[in-house]
């Protein structure tokens, strides 16, 4: 039996006495492509940060490839939600992606790292921009650079926080094309507040609003969408159902 990419048991998180996540039980298989959808403030980012080991849960158990999240960091790539950085921060595309190869204090980057950066930039079709200053890119290009930074470690689990928020609708198609190439090599989990944006591309959907409801394969959600989803109705009503579901 292969290891699960993520395994979460009885996870609860309180923040300033407020319950943010309640009794979450959830797992992600290797090479799964999972979307977690839910309203803003529903705990999506918190859940990702717990998987990444940046936050520690109050109760419950989280394993990433059978290890504690902090020990599994080499196996994870992360695309944060809208980055706040100085508009003319002195860093170029290459240097940005290189930070994803960080090895530890006093350990420099090697030629192998340089090659990995170039490969990751090729994967996202941004290699010709490698010397460009980061803010001299369009939103979609910048997004690709940060995806490159996330995959440059050759992770087994790619975690993305609202990847659709900063790209144009036209870019979505190429984003999913990129994802379908990447998912041959890694499990992917993304969170989004917009079920419509998740589209037909993911394999599985879970809905998170403090509690998590796991729906499994997308097409299973066909019967009685509203009841199954347990989501606020406006969340699914603006995503057109036949865009979410395969033909049935």
């Amino acid at each position: 039996m292969s290891l699960k990419a993520v395994e979460i048991n009885n996870l609860s998180v309180k923040y300033n006495e407020q319950l943010v996540l309640k009794d979450i039980n959830f797992s992600i298989e290797e090479k799964d492509f999972v979307a977690i959808i839910g309203p803003n403030g529903g705990g999506k980012s918190t859940l990702l940060k717990i998987i990444l080991g940046i936050l520690t849960p109050n109760t419950g158990d989280v394993k990433v490839f059978g290890k504690a999240p902090k020990k599994a960091r080499d196996l994870m790539g992360y695309l944060p939600q809208n980055l706040k950085f100085d508009h003319d921060f002195p860093i170029n595309v290459f240097e940005t992606v290189l930070t994803g190869r960080y090895h530890g204090l006093f350990k420099g980057y090697t030629e192998k790292d340089d090659n990995a950066v170039l490969q990751a930039l090729k994967d996202v079709e941004m290699d010709e921009f490698k010397d460009r200053q980061i803010s001299k890119l369009s939103g979609g290009q910048m997004q690709r650079v940060f995806i490159a930074r996330a995959i440059v470690r050759e992770p087994k689990l790619l975690i993305m926080d609202e990847p659709m928020a900063s790209i144009d609708p036209e870019m979505q198609h190429s984003f999913y094309k990129l994802m379908s190439r990447l998912k041959d090599n890694m499990a992917i989990v993304l969170v989004s507040h917009d079920v419509g944006a998740v589209s037909t591309h993911v394999d599985k959907i879970a809905c998170l609003n403090q509690e998590l409801f796991y729906h499994g394969p997308v097409e299973n959600a066909a019967n009685g969408l509203e009841e199954i989803y347990h989501c606020p109705i406006e969340l699914i009503s603006h995503g057109i159902p036949h865009r979410v579901l395969k033909d049935h």
Binding site: I54, R73, T99, G104
Partner: peptide, 13 residues
């Protein structure tokens, strides 16, 4: 790395 993106730098250990 920390000046540019503190949160990401934590993720890479």
């Amino acid at each position: 790395a920390v000046a540019f993106d503190e949160e990401f730098s934590k993720v890479v250990g």
